[in-house]
């Protein structure tokens, strides 16, 4: 009895040692990077790293005054929200079709949609670049919106489909015997019932859109359509070298809203990240 209790105690020590060590490994670089954002530029790259820098808001003024950061922010928000909207408009009916009807080729269509997630951006980058160039969409947020929507459509469709599969069929059948049309059932019964799934899918689509880098780099070649993610890479600004404190602040600017939203949908996160394959928790 006593030995068992001691063993449990040792287990707890190991447990918190391991979890604590990883937590430290996660947070230390983040805190250090925050300190980079809040120090003057001369204290960033030095012969000896400086761990206790002087506090300075230089970078904060720089990103708003020297760069059109408000414009980049606006570009990001428009492109991201637009793309999520496109995904929902296309993805909800598609998910409903895949979840609720029996028809020939259904599983092949479902798998085709899933498989577009595996397409490496680099493979399709060149044709898409020419497609947008010929359409005159290069350097516009419309192009970004379309491409983000395309990247996320498979995710959104599969997540929503997974939530729809959970709804008991009796719920629909009752409405159907009352004479409601399929579209009305989708709109009035299914969509309200799977709202958490729709929100989860939207949040994950939003994160992937914020993170997208390669396409944005190719499509937005002038500051006209820069988003936060690519604007960062361009703070490497030529003769000035990499302006790390500005990069750090912009990174945190993008991080805070994402973090808050993700904490809010925590319970659904694992299901969303696996496109609906893993339920619970």
């Amino acid at each position: 009895m006593a030995s068992q209790r001691r063993k449990r105690g040792e287990n707890l020590v190991i447990r918190y040692l391991i979890l604590g060590a990883w937590a430290l490994f996660c947070l230390m670089p983040v805190l250090w990077f925050l300190s980079i954002g809040l120090r003057p530029r001369v204290e960033i790259i030095t012969p000896q790293p400086i761990y206790w820098p002087t506090f300075s808001l230089d970078a904060w003024h720089m990103i708003w005054e020297d760069w059109p950061m408000a414009k980049y922010l606006r570009n990001s928000i428009l492109a991201i929200f637009g793309s999520v909207l496109i995904d929902l408009v296309l993805g909800i009916p598609a998910a409903y079709s895949l979840a609720r009807y029996q028809y020939r080729g259904r599983d092949d269509i479902a798998f085709y949609i899933l498989s577009t997630r595996m397409m490496a951006p680099a493979i399709v980058a060149i044709p898409i670049f020419f497609l947008f160039r010929n359409a005159g969409l290069l350097d516009t947020i419309w192009a970004l919106m379309l491409i983000y929507a395309a990247i996320n459509l498979s995710f959104v469709t599969w997540i929503i489909r997974s939530y729809m599969l959970d709804i008991p069929k009796e719920l629909e059948d009752a409405a159907r015997t009352d004479g409601a049309s399929d579209l009305r059932i989708l709109w009035e019964i299914i969509i309200p019932a799977i709202l958490p799934g729709i929100i989860t899918a939207s949040v994950i689509a939003m994160i992937f859109a914020i993170n997208e880098f390669l396409f944005t780099l190719l499509i937005a070649s002038t500051p006209n359509a820069y988003t936060m993610s690519v604007a960062l890479a361009n703070f490497t600004g030529g003769s000035d070298g990499v302006i790390y404190n500005a990069i750090a602040l912009v990174a945190f600017l993008a991080f805070v809203p994402v973090f808050l939203v993700v904490v809010a949908i925590q319970k659904h996160l694992s299901r969303g990240l696996t496109m609906g394959a893993v339920k619970g928790g």
Binding site: P29, V30, M228, S229, L232, V242, A248, V250, A251, V258
Partner: peptide, 10 residues
């Protein structure tokens, strides 16, 4: 939850 480009710079 950090942008991958930001992580690369870190």
């Amino acid at each position: 939850l950090f942008m991958p480009s930001a992580v690369a710079f870190i």
